[in-house]
Amino acid sequence: MGIDLPLAWAVIILFAVMMYVVMDGFDLGIGLLFPFIRDRGDRDVMVNTVAPVWDGNETWLVLGGAGLLAAFPTAYALVLQALSVPIVLMLIGLVFRGVAFEFRFKAPPAARGRWDLAFWGGSAVATFFQGVVLGAFLNGFAVSGPDTGAGASWLSPFPVFTGLGLLVGYGLLGVTWLVMKTGGRLQTKCIDIAGPLAWAFLGVLAVVSVWTPLAHPRIAERWFSYPNLLWFAPVPLLVGVALWRLQASLGRGFGAAPFLWTLLLVFLGYSGLGISLWPFVAPPDLTIWEAAGPPQSLGFTLVGALLVIPMILAYTGWSYWVFRGKVRAGEGYH
């Protein structure tokens, strides 16, 4: 029996997007927290916690986008046509944030505030429009007729809500990362912020979980028909357990536990979206098999991906291992 190439590529793209959400999520979340941490020294420590690894995190975004183009060109064309504006705005936010990341350390004290504002603004814009793209993707695209490539307006209420919700999610990832990587006064501030953010993120997940099945009967049938209801019931139960353990770990305030429980929350939210959408690569009609490119192209690019992905994982793991440990005021990685 041969390899199901579209399925293999779907797994790779889902994995790449998940890795991006996790790694660039806490990275962007640090920028989102700047309005809550006003001390310049504390802000320097926050940025120093990701300084050695931040630019490598976006490798996964490139892999996911390139994989979609290589494996599912029809879906890539539909998504790009319908969501070109929010995608471009997201990239502009990432550019502003990247430039500010480098320049804020080199700027004179009088100009540092402007670069901090650019760092926060770029992080907020990039995160918000990533959420908008997600919400518009859930709403679906027209795949036939004169409106081919058109999607539900990306400025409609649901994409706007998912954009705001992703700000909360990335903020929670960022603040629990800082709980793990910092100490003293800054860590205490982050613990105080993390508790309310965790409840807010639970609220976001609850609203999305109710909104999507009400708006899309196909998603409602996927979740609430028998026997799917039994198979998928553990997902919301595990969300409750993860939130409970996250709040309990914040009470202790030390170690990696808050960040790890937040990762589980994010993974469960991501899994819920996957359950709702599978097997559509351009919902509501285009499946991964219908959108797949020629088998020769899928096979050739799969070989390259299977060579590159272990290298990326090895490099990423080594980087995080080398730069493990806490970062303190006046210290950084060189």
Score class of each variant (00 low, 15 high):
residue 13 I to C: 04
residue 290 E to A: 14
residue 218 R to P: 02
residue 175 V to L: 05
residue 302 L to A: 11
residue 152 A to C: 03
residue 256 A to G: 04
residue 32 L to N: 00
residue 280 F to Q: 06
residue 101 F to W: 10
residue 59 T to S: 14
residue 133 V to A: 13
residue 62 V to P: 02
residue 301 T to G: 02
residue 61 L to M: 14
residue 283 P to Q: 06
residue 87 I to S: 10
residue 44 D to M: 09
residue 197 L to E: 00
residue 64 G to W: 03
residue 278 W to T: 05
residue 291 A to D: 10
residue 196 P to T: 05
residue 217 P to L: 09
residue 124 A to L: 14
residue 181 K to N: 01
residue 190 C to R: 02
residue 208 V to F: 01
residue 115 W to Q: 01
residue 63 L to W: 00
residue 190 C to E: 07
residue 263 L to C: 13
residue 4 D to Y: 12
residue 60 W to H: 07
residue 322 V to E: 01
residue 155 L to E: 01
residue 208 V to P: 03
residue 16 A to L: 05
residue 80 L to F: 15
residue 102 E to P: 02
residue 179 V to W: 08
residue 26 F to M: 05
residue 194 A to T: 10
residue 124 A to N: 05
residue 141 F to L: 13
residue 141 F to D: 09
residue 294 P to Q: 05
residue 156 S to M: 08
residue 217 P to T: 06
residue 218 R to F: 06
residue 183 G to P: 03
residue 39 D to W: 03
residue 290 E to V: 04
residue 138 L to K: 02
residue 286 L to H: 07
residue 103 F to I: 06
residue 275 I to Y: 08
residue 276 S to H: 11
residue 80 L to I: 15
residue 60 W to G: 09
residue 236 P to S: 05
residue 137 F to Y: 15
residue 283 P to W: 08
residue 46 M to P: 01
residue 63 L to F: 14
residue 242 A to M: 09
residue 231 W to L: 15
residue 264 L to Y: 04
residue 143 V to F: 01
residue 98 G to A: 04
residue 115 W to N: 00
residue 48 N to H: 07
residue 255 G to Y: 05
residue 113 G to P: 12
residue 81 Q to D: 10
residue 173 L to P: 02
residue 315 Y to R: 13
residue 228 N to W: 08
residue 225 S to F: 11
residue 21 V to F: 10
residue 102 E to G: 13
residue 71 A to Q: 10
residue 224 F to G: 05
residue 15 F to P: 00
residue 2 G to A: 12
residue 300 F to W: 11
residue 221 E to T: 08
residue 97 R to E: 08
residue 239 V to I: 15
residue 83 L to G: 09
residue 231 W to Q: 02
residue 107 A to M: 08
residue 154 W to V: 04
residue 263 L to F: 12
residue 22 V to M: 15
residue 1 M to L: 04
residue 213 P to Y: 06
residue 187 Q to R: 15
residue 193 I to C: 06
residue 181 K to C: 07
residue 214 L to M: 14
residue 245 R to W: 14
residue 285 D to F: 11
residue 44 D to R: 12
residue 82 A to P: 10
residue 181 K to S: 07
residue 146 P to W: 05
residue 106 K to A: 13
residue 21 V to I: 11
residue 178 L to Y: 01
residue 47 V to Y: 10
residue 267 F to R: 04
residue 67 G to E: 04
residue 94 L to D: 08
residue 109 P to V: 12
residue 142 A to F: 12
residue 24 D to L: 10
residue 95 V to G: 11
residue 166 L to H: 02
residue 281 V to H: 08
residue 51 A to R: 15
residue 325 G to D: 02
residue 28 L to G: 09
residue 15 F to H: 03
residue 275 I to N: 08
residue 191 I to H: 02
residue 263 L to R: 01
residue 66 A to H: 04
residue 201 F to K: 04
residue 27 D to A: 06
residue 292 A to Y: 03
residue 172 L to K: 01
residue 295 P to D: 11
residue 143 V to K: 02
residue 127 T to D: 05
residue 179 V to P: 14
residue 106 K to F: 00
residue 43 R to K: 15
residue 202 L to M: 13
residue 42 D to Q: 15
residue 37 I to D: 00
residue 167 L to K: 03
residue 39 D to P: 15
residue 5 L to S: 07
residue 31 G to L: 09
residue 3 I to P: 00
residue 182 T to S: 07
residue 67 G to Q: 03
residue 8 A to F: 14
